[in-house]
Design a protein around this nucleic acid. Sequence first.
DNA 1: TCTCCGATTCACT
DNA 2: GTGAATCGGAGAA
Length: 171
Amino acid sequence: MMLDKDFFDRDVLIVAPDLVGKIIVRKFDNDRIMRVRITQTEAYRGVEDKACHAHKGRTPRTDVMYKQPGTIYIYLIYGMYWMLNFVCERENIPQAVLIRAVEGFNGPGKLTKALQIDKSYNNQSICNNSKIMLFDDLYQPEIIVAPRVGIDYAGKEWAEKPWRFMDKSLS
DNA sequence: TCTCCGATTCACT
DNA sequence: GTGAATCGGAGAA
């Protein structure tokens, strides 16, 4: 069954591990369809989280994270790679889940390249979207946690939070 | 305007 | 293990 807005209308620390094992379905412009299972996610939790882009407040860039749960947040990193995120919690609470890896594509930059996801998907909703969808096929992976990656600049306290979630059977 | 730097990846030593 | 590629957001001036 398809994930709806209610799925994302929860705390990001609940949604992020729950997304591991779910299926991303991508329909390309030539009608080719690609299905991949999410194997790794990370949680970015609001203004208090120094590693979260929204911690400095609402700006044109972070505005998306304040929107409806299920909104897609895309941004460019290092001038080369698009990062795929899904907004959590109700409006005006800036939380998001980063999709860090899917089955067959290990790394957030690689998976967006494989799925041909770019800036044009920013600020769209994952619910009722004809190009990209999320499904639950009732697969329930065993989850293991780890610190987040690439955020040393946020300071030790935040860099060490165990807010990365991965499928144990694939680690 | 100008400067700094990042939720990464890959090639090379 | 180190460094380059590459660009837009955010903050300073």
